[in-house]
Amino acid sequence: MPGPLDGKRILILSTNGFEQSELEVPRDRLKEAGAQVHVVSPEAGEIKGWDKKDWGRAVKVDKALSEARESDYDAIVLPGGQINPDLLRVEPAAIALIKSFYDAGKTVAAICHAPWLLVEAGIARGKRMTSYKSIRTDVENAGARWEDASVVTDAGVITSRNPGDLEDFSRKIIEEVREGKHERRAA
C-alpha cells in the first residue's frame, strides 16, 4: 500500500547539538509515510545530537550543505535544541537554503529553538508562529505573532514548541507536504 508521501523528498538541515528526538522522530515518521529523507549538514560523516542533558547518538549525514539544492526536495525540516540552530543561523549557506524553500512555496518546518533560523532568514515577519518559550521575544521582535500552541501553521510554515509535540509536528509536516506548494510572499 503506498504511503501518503511516496515519491516525496524531505531535507532535514542540522548540525552538531540538535535535540535528539527533534531530528529522529520527524525523520522516522516521514520515512514511514513513504518519503525519502536526507540529513544535510555543513559537516560530513556524522553529526552528534544532544539528548536532554548530555551528548546523544550520532546521525549519518547524507549530503553536504554545499551540495543541497531546494529544487531536489519538497520540504525542509529544522530540528531545534539550543546548540544546533544557534550554530546554523551564522552559516550564510544554511540561511540561504531555508529562504529558498520558503520563496519556492515549499513546506518549512521548525521546532523548539529552530524558529531562530526563520527569524534569521527573514521569514518570521507577519507570520503566526510558536517556539520554545525562551525565544518567544526573539520571534515577536522579528515581527511574528507568537501563539502558545503545540503546532502553528501559516501558509506552509510550520512551527512547534518542544519535543512533547513531535507527533503533532510530524503529522502536520505530512499534511502540508501532501498539499503541495503554498502561496505566500517572498521573504
Results as ranks from 00 to 15, higher is better:
1 M>W: 11
2 P>I: 12
4 P>V: 12
5 L>W: 02
17 G>V: 00
18 F>S: 00
19 E>S: 12
19 E>N: 11
21 S>R: 14
22 E>Y: 01
23 L>I: 00
24 E>P: 05
24 E>K: 11
27 R>T: 00
27 R>V: 00
28 D>I: 00
28 D>Y: 05
29 R>T: 00
30 L>C: 10
30 L>G: 06
32 E>I: 01
32 E>A: 12
35 A>S: 08
35 A>W: 10
40 V>K: 01
41 S>L: 04
46 E>K: 06
48 K>N: 05
48 K>C: 05
49 G>N: 09
50 W>N: 03
51 D>F: 15
52 K>L: 10
54 D>C: 06
55 W>C: 01
55 W>A: 02
55 W>F: 07
56 G>H: 10
56 G>S: 10
60 K>Q: 12
60 K>G: 03
64 A>P: 06
66 S>N: 12
66 S>D: 12
67 E>G: 09
68 A>E: 08
68 A>R: 11
72 D>V: 09
72 D>L: 08
77 V>C: 03
77 V>F: 04
78 L>E: 03
80 G>S: 07
81 G>M: 11
84 N>E: 00
85 P>N: 02
86 D>T: 08
90 V>S: 01
92 P>C: 05
94 A>P: 01
95 I>Q: 01
95 I>T: 15
95 I>H: 01
95 I>S: 02
100 S>F: 07
106 K>I: 08
106 K>A: 11
107 T>G: 03
107 T>R: 06
108 V>P: 11
109 A>Y: 09
109 A>S: 09
110 A>F: 05
110 A>Q: 06
111 I>W: 04
114 A>T: 15
115 P>W: 04
116 W>P: 13
116 W>F: 13
116 W>K: 15
117 L>F: 03
117 L>I: 07
118 L>F: 13
119 V>E: 01
122 G>R: 12
123 I>L: 08
124 A>W: 13
124 A>R: 14
126 G>L: 14
128 R>Q: 12
129 M>H: 03
129 M>I: 07
131 S>G: 15
134 S>K: 05
135 I>F: 00
136 R>D: 09
137 T>N: 05
138 D>H: 13
139 V>G: 04
139 V>F: 04
139 V>Y: 05
140 E>R: 15
140 E>W: 05
141 N>A: 13
143 G>K: 15
143 G>E: 03
146 W>H: 13
146 W>V: 00
146 W>E: 09
146 W>R: 02
148 D>S: 11
148 D>I: 11
150 S>W: 10
150 S>K: 12
150 S>R: 13
151 V>C: 03
152 V>R: 06
152 V>H: 07
153 T>N: 10
154 D>E: 00
156 G>A: 15
158 I>G: 04
158 I>S: 02
158 I>F: 08
159 T>N: 01
159 T>R: 05
161 R>Y: 09
162 N>H: 11
163 P>L: 14
165 D>H: 06
167 E>M: 14
168 D>C: 07
169 F>K: 10
169 F>N: 04
171 R>I: 00
178 R>Q: 06
178 R>M: 05
180 G>S: 07
181 K>D: 04
182 H>W: 11
187 A>V: 14
